[in-house]
């Protein structure tokens, strides 16, 4: 018998809870505990951790969204509540990730409107929800305050904190007990640095999900893949400032040349395969939340992930 695999890991990945059910003071029908892995992804003899979660991304202003998705999903994209409902009931996502793209409009100032948007989505779906706030430093503080407040008790995941902008999002997370996404530009040291900054202002480890930033397949994905592997490796070797679950969102996938110019009748298939290949590779590197924008990606991705969680099952060839 060949020797057992032993990598000498010392520390499991930390856990983060997403969503709060009735029992925990929220209204979600399910909550997830992600993380907890004790070795490289999919190598556990008896899997004790769940398969990675699939988040479907929607937005409140589709003029900033991929035409491929708008075409495929149809009119529902112009009604964010209906879209959230569909992501949950029809597309079969585990999580809904709402991007507040309305804040991208020039001179956007109607922050008061965002609270009802978040509340609407939380009513439309009872899945745990990720909220992506603004990209505009001037209104950040107000935006995150509104999101945090609107989702009070629901244990949201708020995005996205970066080295230059993490205070307002951290404040909202701390005030309303939400978790946050901490994004760094494809660099393990910067990821660690940001986590330390967050720790210093009081955000606990079990409220942080690392986003090492995912370049689209063919456009820097290899750097993201290795950053994820290195983060997972360091965490298992005992670096507690990196021992958090990771999220992968290859947001540029639908705008790259290969997908954009795939030609009539092939765009959807190409978009789905590009998302599928990216998500599967990211899952093997350690990502525990996989974000997709094309509804057609969800079913094949879920099927493959289920297969990856089934280890002790050889084909029976002697």
């Amino acid at each position: 018998m060949p020797p057992e695999l032993n990598f000498g890991w010392t520390t499991p990945i930390g856990e983060v809870v997403l969503g709060a059910t009735n029992a925990d003071g929220g209204t979600r029908r399910v909550s997830y505990r992600i993380g907890g892995g004790t070795t490289l992804p999919f190598l556990e003899g008896q899997p004790s951790t769940p398969a990675p979660l699939i988040a479907f991304e929607i937005c409140d202003n589709p003029s900033f969204w991929s035409p491929i998705v708008k075409e495929y999903c149809g009119d529902v994209t112009s009604n964010v509540n209906e879209w959230a409902k569909k992501a949950d009931a029809d597309y079969g996502a585990d999580l809904v990730r709402l991007h507040l793209t309305s804040t991208k409009q020039r001179n956007f100032s109607d922050v008061a409107s965002l609270g009802p948007v978040v509340e609407g989505v939380l009513l439309a779906t009872s899945l745990p929800v990720i909220i992506e706030g603004s990209n505009e430093p001037k209104i950040d503080s107000e935006v995150y305050q509104k999101c945090g407040e609107a989702g009070q008790g629901e244990r949201l995941l708020l995005g996205t904190a970066e080295a230059g902008k993490y205070r307002s999002i951290a404040a909202a997370a701390l005030a309303y007990n939400h978790s946050i996404i901490a994004q760094s530009p494809i660099d393990i040291n910067l990821a660690k640095q940001l986590n330390i900054l967050l720790k210093e202002i009081g955000v606990q480890r079990d409220h942080i999900v690392i986003d090492p930033y995912t370049g689209a397949l063919g456009y820097g994905f290899e750097y993201s893949y290795s950053a994820m592997e290195r983060i997972r490796f360091s965490a298992l070797k005992g670096d507690s400032d990196l021992a958090m679950p990771m999220i992968c969102s290859a947001a540029d996938t639908l705008t790259i040349k290969e997908v954009r110019e795939a030609g009539a009748g092939l765009q959807d298939e190409t978009a789905i395969q590009w998302e599928l290949f990216t998500c599967l590779a990211a899952a093997t590197a350690g990502a525990e939340i996989l974000c997709v924008r094309h509804p057609g990606t969800i079913a094949p991705l879920r099927k493959a992930l289920a297969g990856m969680k089934q280890p002790a099952h050889s084909a029976g060839v002697p």
Partner: peptide, 19 residues
Amino acid sequence: LAPGTFGDFIRRSTAVRQL
């Protein structure tokens, strides 16, 4: 490796590489 599942492939392929 005649894998029966994707998980089986990942596990044994990693074992082969490591060993």
